[in-house]
Design a protein around this nucleic acid. Structure first.
Length: 575
RNA sequence: GGGCUCGUGGUGUAGAGGCCUAACACGCCGGCCUGUCAAGCCGGAGAUCGGGGGUUCGAAUCCCCUCGAGCCCGCCA
């Protein structure tokens, strides 16, 4: 007999023989009748053993959770008063005729119905996947990658794999490093992204490339960051920004329709970087709700509230949020608590008919004639940092007053980021990456006033999460060289690090550009999960540990012998 | 690299100087039970409180070091 998935039983006729294979979810033993709930990747179903078959009854009593079994039986409709509409498959059951135990399961190491710690879940990841939503999430992730592959293939993109073992490039993310036994002193770097290779593929004439690329970055981790992660990396030749926007908008439309059945409206709104910062205080605004930042500077020019008035008078600003409902004292307290340690000057005012709440001097503020009923969140300052702080308050306030709708997917393009920014050491850094085309066409203009330049770069933001970013690339060597100069690289450094690449640019490079989508984050949003770990089969902890395998581990003796010359030569040679 | 929080049976938590001979729930073992829905009821086993050092008459509890976990900042072109 062929086995059925539990999820397919409903399509079979009642009273027909069925076979299901899976894991024991629960055993409910009533002495002379036993219920065994069986689970496979599609769901759960109740099987039962009646008193008539004493041998089978004894067998069923010996089952424990997560025993691997195969049940042959008859698919039955449950008696009317035994139906449970709120339980999965609660109106059907299988009368077991034979139970084969394929493998006994030892007592489970943790309570799968409880709230295990992350490290416990990862140590027994197979149990975790079996019992949590991860099983479902992995299937969603798989459907997402299929949908993306189909879409890109239909649009003429060619999937090409690029090396993970590659050359170390200083600047940007720290690379993981791999010793090379055959060449003492030499190391590969694990690719932090396929950036150079995909540009080389454009120069090669491939025209349209994509890849699900694993990227490796040896940086300190966060809750939403893994040392290895997956990007949908793509690049195309003879295109401009509009091509990328259209391509990705179509991709998202198809992706959300195929995976979730959700209609995404295109085209996506666009904001320049400056607009995003001034309206929402962030370069990745959550547009599921409005609540824009408003300039209140004028209102404080003639105010008696001197702390803010003085800021406006010294060419600063007072900006803030306005919400038409007043907040209670508890809510204001919570906002204030979220603000301590920000180092910013802030003020909360909540005005209702009969009461007036504020964290500032009440008597002075009550006289402000422009105040309307509702809530004001105000920040005084003169820096981008003050705007960012307001952006954080915008999110906090929206969460507090329940302004963020469920099941809404708000995409937005953020464009025209500055090309360079001043780094901590006072030197200029590329805001996106140094292969990004600036909004000028000659090397002279690049060198003239680099801080004024805008990058032809774009980020795609979904619900306040940056899910992708890319740019039109530099395809002319003299402009690429000028950008390297601005970044403070000497002729020798340029030659040593990027000589091969400049050479390639001078040997027939077409205009090109592309984008990389953070596939883990996309999968997370599609699955409705609140952490990347819920959509990655085998994630690592924040210290880069894999509790399942115990990686990373020390070298074995034979490895030490083989690798000693590599490290010895490395410490003696190089820079 | 910096700041904050946490570590107690297999799992999740309570206990915050003596009431601890360490409590509770789930799980586990034994028993009862013919229709349950994470079944119920009765009984039982299981932790020297992450590790090391110190303070104290007395430490799970206070202090120092260390290991591990979590959150944040730096970092992630």
């Amino acid at each position: 007999m062929n086995r059925s998935y539990v999820g397919d039983l409903r399509s079979l006729p009642f009273n027909s023989p069925v076979r299901i294979c899976g894991w024991v979810q629960y055993v409910r033993d009533f002495g002379r009748v036993v219920f065994v709930v069986v689970k496979d990747r599609t769901g759960i179903v109740q099987t039962y053993v009646s008193q008539d078959d004493t041998a089978l009854l004894a067998e069923a009593k010996r089952l424990s959770p997560d025993d691997v079994i195969c049940v042959d039986g008859i698919l039955r409709e449950r008696p009317e008063d035994m139906k449970k509409p709120d339980v999965e498959n609660g109106d059907i059951e299988i009368e077991a005729k034979q139970i084969n135990v394929l493998n006994r399961c030892s007592p489970l190491p943790y309570d799968v119905n409880g709230d295990p710690s992350d490290i416990t879940r990862l140590k027994y990841r197979y149990i975790d996947i079996r019992h949590s939503g991860v099983l479902r999430n992995l299937q969603i992730r798989s459907r997402a990658s299929m949908a993306i592959r189909n879409y890109l293939a239909a649009h003429g993109f060619v999937e090409v794999e690029t090396p993970y073992l590659t050359k170390y490039t200083p600047g940007g993310a720290r690379n993981f490093v791999v010793p090379v036994r055959q060449q003492p002193g030499k190391f590969y770097a694990l690719a932090e992204s396929p950036q150079i290779f995909k540009q080389i593929l454009m120069i090669s004439g491939l025209d349209k490339y994509f890849q699900f690329a694993r990227c490796f970055r040896d940086e300190d981790l966060r809750a939403d960051r893994q040392p290895e992660f997956t990007q949908v990396d793509l690049e195309a030749s003879f295109i401009d920004e509009e091509y990328i926007y259209g391509l990705i908008e179509g991709l998202m439309k198809q992706l959300f329709m195929e995976v979730l059945g959700v209609e995404i409206v295109t085209p996506f709104p666009r904001l320049t970087y400056d607009e995003a910062m001034s309206l929402y205080g962030t370069d990745k605004p959550d547009l599921r709700f409005e609540l824009p930042i408003i300039d209140f500077s004028e209102n404080f020019k003639s105010s008696r509230f001197n702390a803010f008035k003085s800021v406006v008078e010294s060419e600063g600003f007072v900006k803030g949020l306005y919400w038409s409902e007043p907040l209670d004292r508890g809510a204001l307290k919570a906002l204030e608590q979220a603000s301590t340690g920000s180092g910013q000057k802030f003020l909360f005012i909540s005005k209702a008919e009969e009461s007036f709440l504020t964290n500032g001097p009440k008597s002075v503020l009550v006289e402000e004639s422009w105040l309307q009923l509702g809530t004001y969140v105000l920040v005084a300052g003169d820096s981008e940092r003050a705007l960012q702080f307001l952006g954080e308050l915008r999110l906090a306030l929206a969460k507090h007053i329940g302004l963020i709708p469920e099941g809404r997917y708000a995409f937005v393009w953020v464009t025209e980021r500055p090309m360079f920014e001043v780094g901590e050491d006072g030197n200029l850094q590329a805001a996106h990456h140094p292969f990004t085309m600036p909004n000028v066409t000659s090397p002279e203009e690049v060198l003239e006033n680099p801080l004024k330049l805008r990058a032809r770069a774009y980020d795609i933001v979904l619900n306040g999460v940056e899910v992708g970013g890319g740019s039109i690339r530099i395809h002319r060597p003299e402009i690429q060289e000028a950008v390297f100069r601005v970044l403070g690289l000497s002729d020798e450094e340029i030659e040593e690090r990027f000589g091969f690449f400049l050479n390639a640019l001078s040997l027939g490079a077409p205009p090109h550009g592309g984008i990389a989508l953070g596939f883990d984050r996309l999968a997370m949003i599609l699955a409705g999960a609140d952490s990347l770990r819920e959509v990655i089969a085998f994630p690592k902890t924040k210290s880069g540990l894999c509790p399942l395998t115990g990686a990373p581990s020390e070298l074995f003796r034979n490895q030490k012998e083989e690798l000693l010359p590599v490290f010895k030569a490395a410490m003696e040679g190089g820079e």
